[in-house]
Design a protein around this nucleic acid. Structure first.
Lengths: 329, 329
DNA sequence: AACATTGAGGTAAACGATTACGTTACTTCA
DNA sequence: TGAAGTAACGTAATCGTTTACCTCAATGTT
């Protein structure tokens, strides 16, 4: 493999000059530049990123730390991030934490040691304490969601409360008065969707019925169980807002198995707009969780920090949600 | 940040000794070992992977080069790979090629320059010529699918021909005699599924009707178009084998919109078992394309090469498919 | 003519771990 | 008792770039 030394020899200049024509960090006479470029081509030289990373203590790599790439939400996020970074040729490191705190912490420390140039973190349980090393190493971080607040951490998030509000309001606008909820009612990452649901009902002058608000575990099976339970009630709701599409699809399947028509007998709205949402019948009304857009935005924020074109105060960008009416409501 | 020099000073030994207790590559007296370990803890030392990579010309990182992480098949693959590599603490680099040849080539060269320890490649269009640099650099490669044959490249694949055969045979066993195909009938990555289809029909003494074999473009819309076309035929098939689930779901949706019952009026079988397959109604009969298993296997093969516990001849492992009967057939 | 300035590019010290060679102090045994 | 062997560890070159300092010649200034 040709190194910068070989190139320098071949072009009759010093290694410094080669390095400078590559980086453009100082003026090099046009003819000299050409000689160097020719030498590079002739030898098929490729800079050794390791050596360069070692010197600069940065690797032109971004770590994407997420719970699980297998969750249909994250591939989109990953793609958005990559597309944003592509132009500047950053690579991306993929880290699955399974939403476990020790793994989240471990990965952060790991990628700090690996001298990544930036980190995109989807933290489910980590606290500021867990990312101390990254902060100390001055590595730019962007978090998704609002769990981690810090003056030097940019965050991109969605206004899930508003999204859930719009979804619920659409049910109300369709004439429903008995509206249930399947999802997480406890403080946590998905709580805003419950809050938006409650707000929409309250604003419409409707009361929230606790027995219609079921905690499911965000899987299709969870949705099935929750729906089965709701249908045992003397007066089940006529419409249900589910905190994600998996729950909604599970609920819908159970409803139809019991002979109920969707949306005539029971209307169902989901959240996220996963692939399957458009494929089921009836197609699921839902709220698009703009994963791609969030990934891209995170990448853009990160880029400005990594390239030092911005180093001001914390930024928070909120990517708009989008209501997607289909057939299930 | 503490370096190995600090640790050495703190423990009163040389850097060599520190390095050796870390790697275990030569005997160090137990008490000395303990002193070093204590120093490491006291200083919070973490080896600089860049420095080590530079010296060893390997980075303990594996590149996963795939067309598109957004395609629901690949996240599973990625996870399988990661899980296999986790124990040995290899990282994974994610590279999307969009199945474009120049990108495939570019990424291979890129990760070679980045001195990855291994490559998992899902090549759609690349030829041996495109991965020349990786071969020259002696970097272990595992390819998925049988496109790239080379004495030093292990490959893991599935027997799609057999899988398609089983799926088609199940249709025949159910009494169908008029069986159609939606997918790719041309030489290419998914051709084996067509071949398996043809073989199954032939073995059962049935003839393949060209007008029932439609080329779709592997999306749901493609499936819809193909099915719409089939239904214009004077005698449409009573069963259809689709080369992937997206096609099958599209086909199924169109059939039901036209008032046909699935599977009574037309039976449908897909391939891959994507998430949505279990969620649609009726749930789709399909063949599991064992992405996770393939990723894990690829990881295992790679590990043996990277750790030099194997350096023999080319290995090819075929991960078994699995027929998943559900409601659509 | 003496000095300052500018343009172009060279020198060599980092960066932090690995490892091929040594070295030193004990044992062992003829 | 001295040569050979061994246990335990140290020295310093090396990997390939980057970049803080220099250097040198040519030009400009008074």
């Amino acid at each position: 493999m040709a190194t910068i030394v070989h190139v320098a020899k071949h072009a009759g200049v010093s290694t410094a000059t080669v390095s400078y024509v590559l980086s453009g960090k100082r003026y090099v006479a046009p003819e000299t530049q050409q000689r160097v470029l020719d030498a590079i081509n002739a030898l098929g030289f490729r800079p050794n990123t390791l050596a360069s990373g070692m010197r600069k203590q940065r690797t032109h790599t971004v770590a994407l730390i997420i719970p699980d790439i297998t969750n249909p939400y994250y591939p989109m996020l990953a793609r958005g991030l990559q597309d944003a970074l592509l132009a500047e040729k950053y690579h991306v490191f993929l880290c699955n934490t399974d939403a476990q705190r020790d793994l989240e912490r471990e990965w952060v420390n790991d990628v700090v040691a690996a001298k990544v140039s930036g980190i995109v973190l989807v933290a489910f349980v980590a606290t500021l304490d867990d990312i101390q090393e990254a902060l100390a190493a001055q590595i730019p971080i962007v978090t998704l969601g609002e769990r981690l607040m810090h003056p030097e951490i940019d965050t991109v998030s969605t206004d899930d409360t508003a999204g859930a509000g719009v979804a619920t309001a659409s049910l109300i606008a369709n004439g429903h008065r008995h509206i249930g909820f399947i999802g997480d009612t406890q403080p946590g990452a998905l709580e805003p969707r419950f809050i938006g649901f409650v707000q929409a009902l309250t604003e419409a002058g409707l009361t929230v019925m606790p027995e219609w608000c079921i905690t499911g575990d965000f899987t299709r099976a969870g949705g099935e169980r929750a729906m089965a339970h709701l249908l045992t009630l003397p007066t089940p709701p006529t419409a249900i807002f589910c905190a994600n599409d998996l729950l909604a699809i599970g609920a819908m399947n159970v409803a139809r198995q019991r002979g109920l028509r969707v949306p005539e007998d029971v209307a169902i709205v989901g959240y996220d707009d996963i692939d399957a949402a458009a494929m089921v019948m009836p197609a699921l009304t839902t709220v698009l969780n703009p994963a791609y857009e969030m990934g891209r935005t995170a990448g853009e924020l990160l880029l400005t920090r990594m390239q030092q074109t911005y180093d001001g105060a914390r930024r928070e960008v909120i990517v708009p949600h989008q209501f997607i009416p289909r057939e299930s409501s």
